[in-house]
Amino acid sequence: MIKSLPNKKKIVTFIIENAVSVFLVGFIIFMAFTKRSFSTWDNIVNIINESSIYGIAACAMTVVIISGEFDLAASSIFGWSTVLFTLCCNSIGIGGAFIVTLACGTLFGAFNGYLVAKIKMPAFVVTLGTMIAIKGLAYVVTKAQPINTDNKILWAIGKFQIAGISIIPFVYLGMIILFIWFLRYTKFGRDIYATGGNYEVARLSGINVVFSKFIVFTMLGAAAALAGMMYGVRIKAGWAPYGQDLSLYCITATIIGGTSLLGGNGGVHKTVIGVLLLAVLFNALTLLGVGGSMQKFIRGLVLITVIMLDAVVAKRQRE
C-alpha cells in the first residue's frame, strides 16, 4: 500500500508533464479522421514548410531556456532581418545580404547577452528593451512600408523544391542537427547545461558561466536572423511587423517539447516535437475555419497552460 504511493504519484506526474502533448496528439488523430483535407500530402508539406521558419529560431530559443533565461527580442530581430535582407538583396546582392543580415542579428544577440551575462541585468527587461528598440529601427528604415525584392537568385531559391518541400525545411534540418551536436558533443554545449542547472556549482567547477549566458543570446540573435532571411526567401519581401509572435511561439514550443523554464535540462530534439505539435494545431484550426483572433487567443492560452504545468511539475519533482 505504501509502496504504491510513489508509483501513483509518478503516473500523475507523467500525465501532468505530458498533458499538453497528449491532448495535442489526440487532437491530431481526431483531425486526421474527421477532416479530409488535413491528412493530404499537400497539407503535410504545407505544415513542414510553415513550421520550419519558426523552428530555426526555436532551436536557439531552446538553448537560451536551457541556460535558464528567456528572450523576447527574437521576434524583433526576425522582423528587422526580413527588412535588412530584402534591402540588401536589392542593393548588394544576395550573398552580401546574407552575411550582413546574419552579422547584424548576431550583434543584436550579443548585445542582449552582454547586458544579461556581464552587467547582470534581468533578461526579461533587457530583451523587452531591445525588442522595442529593434522594432522601432525596422519601422524607421522602411517608413513602416513592406519592401519587395526582385532579386533573381532569391526568386530562384524560393522556387526550388523537392516533392513540394522547399529549401527551408532543409536549412531547419541542418540547424537541428547542428544544435543537437553542439549541445551534446561540445564543451560549450555542456557548459550551457551546467550553467542553467546550477549557476553557482557550475561557477565553482571552473565553468565560464558568464560566457555561457552570453553565447546563448548571441546564438539566438543569429538564428532569428537566419529565420528572418528564410521568411524573406519564402515571401520575397521584408516588413517590420513580420514575426511578431515568434518569441511567444518559440517559448511555447520549447516548453511543450519538455524543456523546463528552470533550465539545465531538455534539448533541441524535444523542441522539434513541440514545434511540430504547435504547427499542426494551428494548421488544423485554420482548416476548421477558426479565425485569427481566436487562434491568437488559443496561442496565449497554450503558453499560460504550459508554464503553469511546467511549474507544477517542477514543484512535484522537488517534493
Partner: peptide, 22 residues
Amino acid sequence: LINTLSVAENIFLGRYQGKKTI
C-alpha cells in the same frame, strides 16, 4: 552536483573527456 546532468557528466564537470568534441 548539478541535478539535471548525468552521473558521468557530474563527475567530469568542467573537465570534458575527448579531444575536440566530447
